Computed example of a mutant assay.
Amino acid sequence: MRIGILGTGNIARILAMTIKKVKVLELYAVSSRNNFRAKAFARYFNIPKAYGSYEEMVRDENVELVYIATPHSHHFEHIKLCISHKKAVLCEKAFTSSFEEAEEIKRLAAKNKIYVAEAMWTRYMPSRHIIKDIISSEVIGKISMVTVNLSYDVDEVERIQRPELAGGALLDLGVYGLNFITMYCGKDIDKISVTATKTETGVDGKECIVVVFKNGIMAVSVHGIYGRSDRCGVFYGEKGYIVVENINNPSSINVFDDSDKLIKHIDVPKQISGYEYELLETVECIKNGLLESKSMPLDESVYIMKLISNIKSKF
């Protein structure tokens, strides 16, 4: 399947390296708003086609799948562009910059019968099923609380600080925490409370989100742009706790009993970059005639954007 990358930033570079090692995909094209950048990217990764505009690439009849690697402020526009040219889409997170945009994309994808999925990579990784299996085994008993955190020193990144680029900690980092919580705790939410602070430009710099589920589980997600955190996710149960190292690309899972004794350690399978899982599933789904991802269906993307809109209203 011939894939074209829309955008030439850091994510696009990691993706290009990964695609080169995934046999079911051919890295066929790359596009940028700048022709020089597109050609330089193409030379570096030995890509046959380089386009100085996104419109040119999606008009290429040989492109079968487009990976959107632009800032999330532009995802809505770029997904619509792909749909209008009948191109299947795998779009980097966050899916859009608002709930309304996500709903519109879902409607357009269904109307045009075009495959569209969000590339929330943790949804596709083997670690998702490993963690679910540990929880289901009840080795730590009934879970009462979950904590997650994800912070990096990115406050000087221009994209993060600019409101017009949908900047802020929530859309860039908090989306991982919310996906983690809903993957393992479900969506039957009773209430949400938020404490946040904003930067001088008006975007959210850090926040603490508390989600209480109707079954009594409380989940706390903390994220910010001012420094690196340990990035762990922890499930607290009656008989112990589970620690997931690095919630946005899990590396290992440790299970402890209620006396802090390590009773199980699991390393996740070795990977190329972590992007290969979403790529492989996308190819499989398209070849089987599906219009949505099995791991990240559009209803889930819309739901996460609805949660984000709700949380932003509480800032």
Rank of each mutant, 00 (worst) to 15 (best):
C232D: 08
C232M: 04
G233F: 09
G233Q: 09
V234I: 10
F235W: 14
G237L: 08
G237E: 04
G237T: 11
E238Y: 03
E238Q: 13
K239C: 01
G240A: 04
G240L: 03
Y241A: 05
I242A: 10
I242T: 12
V244F: 07
E245N: 05
N246H: 14
N246I: 14
I247Q: 13
N249T: 15
S251H: 12
S252D: 05
I253R: 02
I253H: 02
V255M: 08
V255Q: 02
V255E: 06
F256M: 09
F256W: 03
F256Q: 05
F256D: 02
D257W: 06
D257A: 08
D257T: 04
S259Q: 04
S259K: 04
S259A: 00
S259T: 03
D260C: 00
D260I: 00
D260L: 01
K261I: 01
L262C: 04
L262M: 06
L262E: 03
I263L: 03
I263M: 02
I263G: 01
K264S: 07
H265R: 10
H265G: 01
I266T: 11
D267Q: 12
D267F: 14
D267L: 08
V268H: 14
P269N: 15
Q271E: 13
Q271S: 09
I272H: 02
I272N: 01
E276V: 09
L279E: 06
L280D: 00
L280I: 08
L280M: 10
E281D: 07
E281S: 05
T282F: 10
T282K: 14
T282H: 14
E284V: 08
E284I: 10
E284R: 15
I286G: 10
I286Q: 10
K287H: 14
K287I: 07
N288S: 14
N288C: 15
L290D: 11
L290R: 15
L291E: 15
L291Q: 03
L291Y: 13
E292W: 01
S293F: 09
K294R: 11
S295L: 01
M296N: 12
M296T: 05
M296D: 02
M296L: 11
P297D: 01
